[in-house]
Simulated scan of single mutants.
Amino acid sequence: MEGEANGTLHPSCRATEPPYSQELLQSLDLPGRFLFAILTLMTLIANLVFIEEVVYIYRKISSSKRSVIIWINAAAPVIATTSCFGMWIPRATMFTDFTAAVFFAIVIHKFLMMMIKECGGQKLLLRRFENGHFKISTGPCCCCCLCLPRVRITRRTLFWLKLGTFQFAFLRPMLMFLSIVLWTNGNYTLYNLSPKGAAIWINCFVGVLTILALWPVGIMFQQVRTLLICKKIIPKFALYQFILILNHLQGAVINILAMQRIISCAPPLSSSARGAHMTQQLLIMEMFLITLISRMVYRRRCDDLEPPERMAEEVGDNKIILNGAVNEDGLRV
C-alpha cells in the first residue's frame, strides 16, 4: 500500500496475468501454507462425502430419480474442486470458473426436472394440477409485475418451462467455448470490462440467459412447494439458491472491488488476481459446508406421493368420517 501511495508499484501489481503457481507457493509464509493445506483437505472431504452419497442414492433411490439427484448433489463438490485447482494454479482461474459455470448451468435444468419427477413425472403433475394455473409474476424476472395473468398448467406450458432452463444448459457451454477461442486470439480478457472488449458483452448476454433460466425454476417452485413439503423441497431449494448466489454474485462483487483497487495488490498477486484468489478460497469453505448440509437434506428417505385418484378417495372418506365421531376401534359413536 505504501508503494502505491508513493507511485512505485511492485511489477506484479501492474501485471495483467496472474502469477505462475511456483511464484505463488514460494511467496507463502507458514500460515499461508497451512491455509492451503486445510482448504485442500476440505475439498478432498467434500468429494469423499459426495462419493458416499452417490453409493447411498444408487442403493436407496429409484432409478427414475437417481440421475437428477446426483447432478444436483454434485454441484457443491464440483465447484469446490474447480476452486481448489484455481487456488493452486492462479493462471487456470478462467478455465476453472468456466467449468464450474457450465456445470451449474446444467444443474439449474436438473433442479427443474427433479421437481417434476418428485411430483410423479409430467403426466401425474398435469393430472394433479389439471385445473391449476402457474403464477408467472415471480423472481428473478417478473417479481414486480403483479399484473401478469396466471397461465394454465398444460403440456405446452411445461414444455416452455423446460426449454427455459435447457437453453441455458445448451448455450452456456457454447459461450464459454467462444470466450476461450477469443482469449487465444487476445480479444477476450477476464478482467477487461471495457466496451471495446468482448468480455463485457458476453457476460451481459450470459446474465440475461441466467435470469431467463432461473425464472422457470421459480415458477415451478411456487406451484409445487406445498405439495412437495414432505420431500423437503424448501431446504433443497434454499441450498440451490445459496450455491447460485455464492458462485455468481459473490464472485462478481469481489471482482468489482478488485478492479476498483479496493482489494489491494499483494505481490505476487495483482489486485484482480488477488480478488479471484479470495473468491476461490471462500468458495471452497462455503461449498464444503453446503456439501455436508446437502447430505443431511437429500439423505432423508421420503415416500412417493399418492396418485391423484387415491387422494380423491381419501378426501371422500374423510368427508364421511367428519359427519360423526369415531372411536379407537373404528366404530361410529
Results as ranks from 00 to 15, higher is better:
residue 8 T to K: 09
residue 14 R to H: 03
residue 15 A to V: 00
residue 21 S to W: 15
residue 28 L to P: 04
residue 32 G to S: 09
residue 33 R to E: 13
residue 33 R to C: 14
residue 36 F to G: 09
residue 46 A to I: 10
residue 57 I to F: 03
residue 62 S to Y: 04
residue 63 S to N: 07
residue 76 A to D: 06
residue 77 P to G: 05
residue 77 P to S: 03
residue 89 I to D: 09
residue 97 D to Q: 11
residue 112 L to R: 04
residue 113 M to A: 12
residue 115 M to K: 06
residue 116 I to D: 02
residue 118 E to W: 11
residue 118 E to N: 10
residue 125 L to G: 04
residue 126 L to A: 02
residue 128 R to T: 01
residue 142 C to L: 15
residue 149 P to R: 03
residue 151 V to K: 06
residue 161 L to Y: 01
residue 163 L to P: 01
residue 163 L to D: 02
residue 166 F to I: 07
residue 175 L to M: 11
residue 176 M to W: 14
residue 180 I to P: 05
residue 192 N to L: 00
residue 200 I to E: 01
residue 202 I to K: 00
residue 202 I to C: 01
residue 207 G to L: 03
residue 211 I to N: 06
residue 211 I to M: 12
residue 213 A to K: 02
residue 215 W to L: 08
residue 217 V to P: 02
residue 222 Q to P: 02
residue 222 Q to F: 06
residue 230 C to S: 15
residue 234 I to Q: 15
residue 239 L to N: 13
residue 246 L to V: 14
residue 247 N to A: 13
residue 248 H to N: 12
residue 249 L to E: 06
residue 249 L to V: 13
residue 259 M to I: 13
residue 276 A to T: 07
residue 287 M to W: 10
residue 294 S to E: 14
residue 297 V to E: 05
residue 304 D to R: 05
residue 307 P to T: 02
residue 318 N to Y: 07
residue 321 I to Q: 14
residue 323 N to R: 13
residue 332 R to N: 09
